[in-house]
Design a protein around this nucleic acid. Structure first.
Lengths: 337, 337
DNA sequence: TTTGTGATTGACAACGTTGTCAGTTTGGAA
DNA sequence: TTCCAAACTGACAACGTTGTCAATCACAAA
């Protein structure tokens, strides 16, 4: 039975309302009273009961991040960073795994909104692929900030990277090394990144005056297995590519594995690029040339934007685009002569 | 303004208490009334307000998992599994990053207990290394289940693997391949696994009648950098090891990287073993020989045990030991002649 | 002196549940 | 028929906060 506001009030010799004012930093409390109340709070070891506060204010002080477990590999560092923000701002951050098309996920989401009254959401791809989430949050009028959303909306704030540009830079890097047959591994159709990166790849080829060879474009679903299978097929072609741009890092790991299995030396016989710069990409051998996506910053700024909205502050812009950067490591080199 | 229990009661033509009985599946409601209430619930789209329920029952229906962000790499699959259990059992699962020795972590933990009234905790190494957590939970009388705890307690339930056995099996595997100079990379001093794995390594050597060479035992802190640095030093020895047992997978990644950098072929010139079987270990080349630790099952059974405790049910045993298994992949082979 | 204004304070309702307890109904045994 | 226990039901308090509003106080201006 922890101390309540009443215990504090009794000890400080004032009303519970005055204690409440002190706790919430409201004005109209004399310095003397404030000091007395604060002393009483310390004396009885008082901590406000969050459930009561939530009930009285009809707010939950909770933010939920919808995360698709398959992709995104949320390094714990990211989660930790987000929790810190929550700590500063007095919000609790709830990490919720979410599978689109999965009915249990949907029910859980409904319960988070209707029972827990979560104050706001951050979504990550491909959780936004169907309109279910946005529609649901729309009908319940729960604020939402999206990360790399499928559809960029004028009304829903989002944080994103420039995947067209990043993919173009990767491709130009490979072109500048002398590669002419560059394969591209396409991601799932429910993520915007898949299309944007494909566009960047194609833009670079066209700008270089090269044809787009459909046999060099394969599906990987952004998975290890997808990258592996695509590579086995690609390298069996009569004239195989000299470089594979894997669409994302996880697929690239599959490409690397397949290349090793086939007995190809990386990067001498096959250059490989990824996209995303997962933590592991600098730890494998050879280091993976990729595009660093500032996932931590993205989640952080999405969360901060959401909190601003919840506090009723205006955002500078509904669209936050963060820069990505090509990271050159050991997995790319000029093609074999 | 969502529907409340009053709206349901009005529509069903009964008291709010009767609605409450129906919601909670309590007895003493006639079938006819029950049906009418349920119809009303559906009609108004009622969902109970969790904050009010928490306040009235002085319970949070929340479980918190303390996770050290550096290690453990909680694959999202694990988190997802745990959330599912929570869903089944009507508990919300809070994932809380926790750094021992980090004062903010401690304050957050205190707030989780005293403000949020979290019903129970699951700890993972090395969050339990100091006694702070156990003491705190003890004084607040909050139930706790530990995973791979530093001290195995008779009173605090825990789930663990048999690291001594696992490490012994790894070492015996290397011995059976013919290795005689096997290095061991020690983990941090605040994790039981570090000592248990060292013991398994030493037991196997002693059982084979081999001496324990202290120059072959190095610190890695279970990190990539630690594994990398230790390997550079080890391979500079006048008579370097022919195999390195890296203590955990993350350190093993560092060993592999260093070996490649030195120009050693794996496994022909150097055999490498890890421990833990992180998801990536089967995706790198060559696949890493390691010990599979059933992390998902461990977190699952710890969570289930905690929920049983919270429900007042007795545990079959306070000590749950789950089997680990040696996984042979491509990173080990007989030593060079 | 009176008046007004802003600072300070507290009584009480409200938030949406569940717990307590007393009242009513039902059905079967005496 | 009467009585009793069990089944059913609801009024109301309680949980620990915050919001509303009225009351009081202090002090300066009129």
């Amino acid at each position: 039975m922890p101390a309540t506001i009443k215990d504090v009030a009794r000890m400080a010799g004032c009303s519970i309302k005055t204690v409440s004012r002190v706790i919430n930093g409201e004005p109209y409390v004399s310095e003397e009273t404030r000091a007395r109340v604060q002393a009483a709070i310390r004396a009885v070891g008082y901590a406000p009961n969050i459930s009561a506060r939530r009930l009285a204010q009809n707010k939950s002080f909770m933010i939920c991040i919808l995360l698709y477990p398959g992709l995104l590999q949320p390094s714990s560092a990211i989660l930790s960073r987000v929790m810190d923000i929550g700590y500063e701002e007095n919000y609790d951050i709830l990490i919720q795994p979410y599978f689109p098309t999965h009915s249990r996920s949907k029910r859980k989401l409904v319960s988070l909104i209707s029972e827990q009254h979560i104050d706001g959401f951050v979504t990550t791809p491909p959780c936004d692929a169907e309109d279910f989430v946005a529609d649901l949050l729309g009908t319940y009028k729960v604020p939402l900030v999206q990360i790399n959303p499928f559809h960029r909306s004028d009304t829903i704030p989002f944080v994103a990277g420039d995947d067209v540009l990043g993919a173009r830079q990767v491709t130009e890097h490979l072109l500048s090394l002398g590669h002419r047959r560059i394969a591209f591994l396409m991601g799932p159709r429910n993520m915007r990144a898949s299309f944007d990166r494909l566009a960047g790849y194609q833009n670079a080829l066209l700008a270089a005056g090269l044809p787009i060879d459909p046999t060099l474009i394969r599906d990987s679903e952004f998975t290890f297995d997808g990258g592996y299978t695509a590579t086995r097929l690609l390298m069996d072609l009569p004239s195989p590519p000299t470089a594979i741009f894997a669409g994302n890092d996880e697929a690239a790991y599959g490409v690397i594995f397949a290349a090793h299995e086939i007995g190809l030396r990386i990067p001498d016989q096959l250059s490989i690029c990824g996209y995303d710069d997962f933590a592991m990409s600098k730890n494998i051998w050879p280091g993976l040339t990729t595009v660093h996506q500032p996932l931590e910053e993205m989640i952080e700024s999405a969360t901060r934007a959401l909190i601003r909205i919840l506090k009723g502050e205006a955002l500078d812009s509904n669209q936050i685009i963060l820069p990505s950067a090509l990271v050159l490591r050991g997995s790319t080199a000029p093609p074999p002569r």
